[in-house]
């Protein structure tokens, strides 16, 4: 990071990559050589280079998900040496640069591992479970056209900022991948917190948390052990306090629940 442009020379790296041709294939780790890698490349650009070489050699390139490459779409995400999104904190894999590595390094690249995230191919996993958690209640039920004036309800700046902190989640799934229990607590709680902190979200608070937690459970994610590994790898630095907020919301909801 502190290295300035040009001070670091191009590197040769050994990659150990998970290859799996499809959902039914068993898959295995395969070794690739990544040569002449510029430290200014992003991690995904390094994979691009490796893939171009694989194609030229007549092989099939490594499938990995990516899109915006500026750390906001949440598409990318692989385990890099056992750490979701790699060694830089608060950084998605697409914004991780090769200057974080050294010449001769061996890099182990694996897909997110969780029962709820079946591998589709190579490093691509199915994260639709996260969509289903949102669908279960991660919204404010307001039809288009129903809205009062934007300034009808003043919202304290601090409250709005807190909600924004939670709402910054990009849904990449790193928290789940890193958690020893493959728990989706940070993801789910970030949305619950975002909406529970705002007055607009208040009427549905109870129902929302009960339904989202039930869905999270149904997707077979593990439980939260409060270790905070999720917070450590979150590219948007979502905090664990969201999880305790979710727990609090949940208690409040089940105690008040009439059904």
């Amino acid at each position: 990071m502190s290295a300035s442009n040009g001070t670091k020379k191009n590197m040769n790296l050994k990659l150990l990559v998970w290859r799996q041709s499809g959902g039914k294939d068993k898959g295995k780790m395969t070794t690739y050589q990544a040569n002449d890698i510029s430290p200014d490349m992003s991690f995904l650009e390094m994979l691009d280079v490796v893939n171009e070489n694989i194609i030229r050699d007549g092989g099939e390139p490594i499938a990995f998900e990516h899109d915006c490459r500026e750390g906001i779409c949440g598409s990318c995400g692989v385990m890099i040496n056992g750490v979701a999104h790699g060694p830089d904190e608060g950084t998605a894999a697409c914004q991780l640069h090769m200057r974080s590595f050294n010449d001769g390094d061996e890099i182990v690249i694996e897909p997110w591992r969780a029962r709820a995230f079946p591998v589709i191919r190579d490093l691509v996993v199915d994260r639709s479970a996260l969509d289903r958690i949102i669908a279960a209640g991660g919204y404010i039920s307001v039809n288009t056209g129903n809205a009062p004036d934007g300034n009808a309800i003043p919202i304290p700046k601090e409250m709005s900022n807190d909600a924004m902190d939670s709402a910054a989640c990009i849904g990449c799934g790193a928290c789940i991948a890193q958690c020893k229990n493959a728990s989706a607590a940070l993801f789910t709680s970030a949305k619950i917190a975002h909406l529970a902190l705002l007055p607009q979200g208040d009427p549905e608070r109870g129902e929302r948390v009960i339904r989202m937690v039930a869905q999270m459970d149904a997707e077979k994610f593990g439980s939260c052990s409060n270790e905070g590994e999720c917070e450590a790898v979150c590219p948007k630095e979502i905090q664990m306090t969201n999880i305790s907020l979710m727990n609090r919301e949940y208690e409040r909801a089940i105690l008040a629940n009439k059904k």
Binding site: Y139, I140, V142, A147, D149, G150, P154, S160, N161, A167
Partner: peptide, 19 residues
Amino acid sequence: IDQCVAQGVPFAREYGGYL
């Protein structure tokens, strides 16, 4: 803007709580 605020979009606010 009204619609998005109602959906819970956390737009920046001033200290008085207004957009």
